[in-house]
Design a protein around this nucleic acid. Structure first.
Lengths: 211, 211
DNA sequence: TTGCTTGTTGGACGATCGTACAACAAGTGC
DNA sequence: GCACTTGTTGTACGATCGTCCAACAAGCAA
């Protein structure tokens, strides 16, 4: 059917990659496109172009852009988690120092960044319409909160108040992080840190008082 | 040019509306479409269809979908603001009761709702790429925080700590509100209320202590 | 009535979207 | 060397996108 099978396909850029590596490169391209062009600009073609790959290949690895965004979110969440873990390790063994390191890392690069926010927003925009993505969100939120519960527990927060304390600190960090990404000039990362630390102080002391 | 000017345009639904009313109806249609189909499903055509209006009319009132989303956000923000004001009025004159009413209203309908969240997300997705929308966001965030500063001030929070206190409570409420909209089963509106009230308790008492 | 202004329509236009698919390239087993 | 599998390409297809614009409908002034 095609009228021009003409030109010899000599210099075509055909390179076969490990399936996992290819998926990974597509995920990273998706993250870059989301960061650059936002939700509206992230199409199959744009992502394939950024990954240096033909458009058709995206469909070969992912059922659609939604699935790719979901995996991109998981990938970036893992990166954030790794960055926070590294900060925790660097903080040593003192429980409160580790909690402070958790807070500090949350408001610094690479966790707090407008580019990452774009991926978060793209993911959130899918939560309401796709139940599988809603499930994924629930899991990742639960994991985030569970880790915070562990850190708070080591700081002496009683088991009875652990759930609420973790919800509170998670919400506070999320809210500060979101606003910091959306309009970095409203307040500084340092201010966000101090606010979160003050909340931790009050939470830990009042809880200890009621031990 | 057109091949069929045939059928008499007798029953065509042509109704001229007040310019302001027409804008308003388009804004409301945009909010409905965003709530129903999310960011990806909100096109000029879909919004016009929902408003019972021809697609071309959207371009007559707004420069594009972005501008319409921005105005829709402003409209919904005004609605939220009105709902909170009504709750404040109903709470009477006691400063702390008003603050509690502020919190309660934030986690109940119509403020906390997955449908509203869709408009928020659509708006956030435009903040990074469009500087005018970033400016609008800054203004509305500042207004929200300013009102909270007023309420906190009446509760005895010292002027020196007012800014940080308002940032903290705003972030806490935003974080709880966001998670409540995204996954309503993670925790309840009642829990969110208690968490926010506890934060206010601690904030007000510690501040009074340092008076 | 007549002419003018303006909200409104509906379709045309080119661009871009996601998807599907036949052709091709590189391994792999034989 | 020869089938066979599979990652990859490029393109064609129909749908939908935002924008544009000539035609039309209603109100208003004279």
């Amino acid at each position: 059917m095609s009228a021009k099978p003409a030109i010899t396909r000599a210099e075509r850029a055909f390179t076969r990659a490990e399936p996992d590596a290819r998926r990974q490169s597509l995920v990273e391209a998706c993250a870059r496109v989301l960061a650059r062009d936002g939700v509206g600009g992230s199409s199959v073609r744009a992502i394939a172009l950024d990954a240096g790959v033909s458009p058709g290949l995206v469909g070969h690895y992912f059922s659609g852009v939604d699935a790719l965004v979901a995996e991109t979110y998981a990938h970036i969440e893992a990166q954030v988690s790794a960055a926070i873990n590294a900060a925790l390790d660097a903080a040593g063994t003192d429980p409160r120092a580790r909690l402070d390191a958790f807070v500090t890392a949350s408001f610094r690069a690479p966790v707090a960044s407008g580019e990452l926010l774009a991926t978060w927003i793209a993911f959130w925009s899918l939560v309401r319409s796709r139940s599988d993505i809603a499930l994924q969100h629930d899991h990742q939120y639960a994991a985030f909160r569970a880790r915070l519960e562990g850190l708070l527990s080591e700081c002496g927060v009683a088991k009875a108040g652990l759930r609420r304390a973790a919800i509170a600190i998670t919400a506070l960090i999320d809210g500060l992080w979101l606003e910091l990404c959306l309009s970095p000039q409203a307040f500084s990362a340092g201010e966000a840190e101090m606010i979160a630390r003050a909340a931790l102080d009050s939470l830990i002391s009042t809880d200890r008082r009621s031990d």
